[in-house]
Design a protein around this nucleic acid. Sequence first.
RNA 1: GGAGAAGUGGCCGAGUAGGUUUAAGGCGGCACCCUGCUAAGGUGUUGUGUGGAGUAAUCUGCACCGAGAGUUCGAAUCUCUCCUUCUCCGCCA
Length: 421
Amino acid sequence: MLDIKLIRENPQKINELLKRRNPELSIDEIISIDLERRKVQTLADELRAKRKNMSQEIGIMKKQGQNTDEIQSKVKEMAEEIKKLEEKEQELDSKQKILLLSTPNIPDETTPIGLSENDNVEIKRVGEVKKVNFVQKPHWDICTEKDIVDFERGVKLSQSRFSLYKGKGAQLERAIINFFLDVHTQEHGYQEIFPPVMVNSATMTGTGQLPKFAQDMYKCENEDLYLIPTAEVPVTNIYSGEILNEEDLPKYMTAYTPCFRREAGSAGKDTRGLIRQHQFNKVELVKLCTPETSVEEHEKLTRNAEHILELLELPYRRVALSTGDIGFSARKCFDLEVWLPSYNSYKEISSCSNFGDFQARRANIRYRSKETGKPIFVHTLNGSGLAVGRTFAAILENFQTEDGSVVIPKVLRKYTGWDIL
RNA sequence: GGAGAAGUGGCCGAGUAGGUUUAAGGCGGCACCCUGCUAAGGUGUUGUGUGGAGUAAUCUGCACCGAGAGUUCGAAUCUCUCCUUCUCCGCCA
């Protein structure tokens, strides 16, 4: 959520920045509602003050045995007027709130300007794409041949885009999860979290999934509960509504969870294999920090995710997303893309974002400034560290050999207990 | 799921036959004073949100006693719905 005071004071600037995302975005309506809302509030406040004083007077008069009929009927009239104003106040308030909650974050000045993913900027490439003189198989064929992921029975049990890991497949998936968590907790200093995977609508609003993206999520019938699309949602909201001490920052948290996405609107995309599933595993990195440190913390968090790819010896590149491609809540975002032979290109495996105070304002996460003693909104950051299923696919494809076996990366072997698949 | 009890400021804890409560008191925090230092003591101060005035320090209004709705001239206090916690029962890994 954008700061209404910032909008009031710099309307042209905010509009200009929002139009970098999408030329149709504008805060003009918010401003006109805000103007009216404040007028109504001032009127209502004044009347409430009058009522308060007069009611007190009635109390005193009654004690003295005076007749209060006249003044009572006066206040009653006033109360009706107040009620009308309060209704108007509430209406404008909720209108403004919905508009504010539906307006995306303003992009950072350093976010490349452009309207689509074609305007994303490659920052660097790391690792060599292996040159081989045999035909590399896509991971879905490897999975089926080795019977480590059963796509058909996954669909039978659930629906398309659900799959069933078996035997060494299930073991490899679990090994990857444990490896990720161990690196982040032991080498990078993150606290491990295991959160609920169903959360309420307030929590979903805090990180920006609601109110705009309800159709992307699975919702429980007759309950105010949604399946999380990412651990970002419960983990970022852990301290919602709280005021932290400045000494408690930065907070580094990592969580493994399954993630659930309806993938509405991606019909026909990535239909084969593990790349786009309704349920997938992910290890997420989340940070809460002060505004002064968020740029630096964003870089460090991105490096933490890259470090995993480097340990696995998977070739990847870092891309800075353009203003037209960054997520709703983000002001700046780096994608990490891993090389996938079956796609003959790099494919997203992590998305590392800086949200500024956008999520903190929605979720009301603050810290008390040591200097002023006043509460300040934290900055929130997150990134995948990494997507597990896509890592699984990247390992199978990049480390397959001519004889059809797959050599497990060294760092994973103590987790799998075997080195060849 | 059933039956009972309870939810007040950072914490503890008064306040419910509605009306100077604009929430007592204590603890903690902060500032200053006293003491050679420490301990103890003294004085003052103390939340959040949202408006208004002012360049600003600041001054000032309104709202907030789990959440929402209602009754009333007036609600922490009365009524209703919901949420959470605790105790007992049932069920269950």
